[in-house]
Simulated assay, not measured.
Amino acid sequence: MRALLCKTYGGIDDLSEEEVASPKPGPGEVRVKVAACGVNFPDTLIVAGKYQFKPDPPFSPGGEISGVVDALGEGVTAVAVGDSVVATTLWGGFAEEIVIAADKVMRRPEAMDPVIAAGFSMTYGTAIHALVQRGALKRGEALLVLGASGGVGMAAVEIGKALGATVIAAASSADKLAIAKEAGADITINYTDQPLKDAVKEATGGKGADVVFDPVGGDFTEQALRATGWGGRLLIIGFAAGAIPKIPANLTLLKGCAVVGVFWGDFVRREPEANRANFDRLFAWVADGTLKPLVSETFALADAPEALRRLAARQAVGKLVVDLTK
Rank of each mutant, 00 (worst) to 15 (best):
residue 147 G to M: 10
residue 211 V to M: 05
residue 308 L to E: 03
residue 279 F to T: 12
residue 289 G to P: 08
residue 112 M to V: 10
residue 99 V to Y: 06
residue 244 I to R: 04
residue 169 A to T: 07
residue 149 S to P: 03
residue 194 Q to N: 04
residue 29 E to G: 01
residue 84 S to C: 10
residue 253 L to T: 13
residue 225 L to Q: 02
residue 312 A to I: 07
residue 22 S to C: 14
residue 234 L to V: 11
residue 157 V to D: 10
residue 80 A to H: 09
residue 111 A to Q: 09
residue 115 V to H: 04
residue 100 I to S: 00
residue 231 G to C: 12
residue 9 Y to N: 05
residue 45 L to H: 03
residue 72 L to H: 03
residue 255 K to L: 13
residue 40 N to I: 07
residue 44 T to K: 05
residue 201 K to V: 02
residue 128 I to F: 09
residue 80 A to V: 07
residue 212 V to D: 00
residue 35 A to R: 07
residue 249 A to K: 02
residue 320 L to A: 10
residue 239 F to A: 06
residue 181 K to E: 15
residue 39 V to E: 08
residue 158 E to C: 04
residue 277 A to V: 13
residue 207 K to F: 07
residue 42 P to D: 15
residue 146 L to Y: 02
residue 248 P to D: 14
residue 282 L to D: 08
residue 71 A to I: 06
residue 82 G to N: 12
residue 102 A to H: 03
residue 52 Q to F: 09
residue 10 G to C: 09
residue 212 V to C: 01
residue 35 A to P: 02
residue 312 A to E: 15
residue 162 A to D: 11
residue 127 A to M: 10
residue 198 D to M: 05
residue 93 G to Q: 10
residue 269 R to H: 12
residue 254 L to I: 13
residue 156 A to F: 08
residue 17 E to V: 15
residue 53 F to T: 12
residue 208 G to S: 10
residue 40 N to M: 10
residue 2 R to M: 11
residue 156 A to C: 09
residue 5 L to N: 00
residue 110 E to D: 14
residue 171 A to M: 09
residue 150 G to T: 08
residue 181 K to H: 06
residue 293 P to N: 15
residue 51 Y to Q: 07
residue 91 W to L: 01
residue 243 A to N: 11
residue 211 V to K: 01
residue 11 G to D: 15
residue 113 D to F: 05
